[in-house]
């Protein structure tokens, strides 16, 4: 039987050889292979690489919205680092990342653990907690404005029942960023929860059965089985959120307009104000490059952390 198959293959090969030359190495580099990536490459270059290079070029020029002026070297960067509002916005952005990312990771994990079961109630709550993620930033900030607005807001009403004054989340410089963080956590919690849920559902049930046979308690099971199993997802969630929250804009723009006195102004809002309100495009481009570097560092951290994990 085997001989018959081998013999028929040889006949087939020789018949092919009789008609045309043997095929070239399909792995050999050929220019036409680039056609496969050309559509993506076109958009990548025009929509990402070109604007990036253009932005860097602009940051070295005195430019407004309607034209590029003279080359000014690093003057825009010097102005930027001499501008206390910019430095404040960098600090605000880090503070916001610190407020939101751990909370999103831990709350997302907690919810995923609580809702990782096949019941209707769990399915309902999974949908409920994820539902806020589908809202636009405009709706989210409108909802939280109704909660926070003094005298007439939901919070003011609740505090009013106890004859106390609600904290001024929209106008107190110490609370403004916290108010934005609360709205953001409420808005963004769905994605981390879903990522953790999918990771939890990939942990083999046999390991938990083995742990149960070993009389491991819940905490031991969580610490020794669950956490190590979802560690990569945890890192992924943290880094996705770091990159996302660094780009805070809409919530701050719509809830506090970066105030009071720039206490809740993030870098992107600073860039927006400088480029579109002051028409100082060169300075805005320079600030954008700083933000790009900060996000690049976060993205590289993700790359190295996950790569090391893979090698281990």
């Amino acid at each position: 039987m085997v001989e018959a198959v081998v013999s028929s293959r040889e006949e087939f090969s020789s018949s092919l050889a009789g008609h045309k030359a043997p095929p070239a190495n399909v792995n050999a580099a050929q220019w036409r292979n680039a056609l496969f990536v050309a559509p993506y490459l076109f958009f990548f270059v025009t929509m990402l690489v070109f604007p990036l290079v253009w932005g860097i070029w602009l940051s070295f020029h005195k430019a407004d919205t309607f034209g590029v002026g003279k080359f000014v070297g690093l003057a825009n960067y010097a102005r930027l680092f001499g501008d206390r509002i910019f430095l404040l916005s960098v600090g605000n952005t880090f503070y916001f990342v610190l407020l939101t990312v751990p909370a999103l990771a831990l709350l997302g994990l907690f919810l995923a653990l609580a809702l990782n079961r096949q019941t209707r109630t769990a399915a309902f709550f999974r949908a409920a907690y994820f539902s806020s993620s589908v809202l636009s930033v405009t709706i989210v900030t409108l909802i939280w404005r109704i909660v926070f607005v003094p005298d007439f807001g939901f919070l003011a009403t609740v505090y009013g029942w106890f004859d106390t004054k609600a904290p001024a989340f929209l106008s107190d410089p110490n609370l403004a960023m916290i108010g934005i963080a609360i709205a953001t956590i409420w808005w963004c919690l769905g994605l981390p929860m879903m990522l953790f849920l999918s990771a939890l559902q990939q942990v083999p049930a046999e390991i938990y059965e083995a742990a149960a046979l070993d009389n491991a308690n819940r905490w031991q099971t969580f610490r020794s089985i669950t956490l190590p199993s979802i560690k990569r997802t945890f890192i992924l969630v943290v880094l996705i959120q770091v990159v996302l929250q660094f780009q805070l804009f809409g919530q701050a723009r719509l809830m506090t307009q970066g105030g009071p006195n720039n206490a809740s102004k993030p870098i992107v809002l600073y860039i927006y104000d400088v480029a579109f309100k002051r028409w100082d495009l060169g300075l805005g481009a320079a600030a954008s490059e700083i933000l790009f570097i900060l996000i690049l560092i976060a993205a590289m951290a993700q790359y190295f952390l996950t790569r090391n994990r893979g090698e281990n």
Binding site: V149, P150, D151, F152, A168, L170, S171, D172
Partner: peptide, 10 residues
């Protein structure tokens, strides 16, 4: 104190 534009009108 603490009122934005629409809250002040209200």
């Amino acid at each position: 104190k603490d009122m934005d534009y629409s809250a002040a009108i209200q």
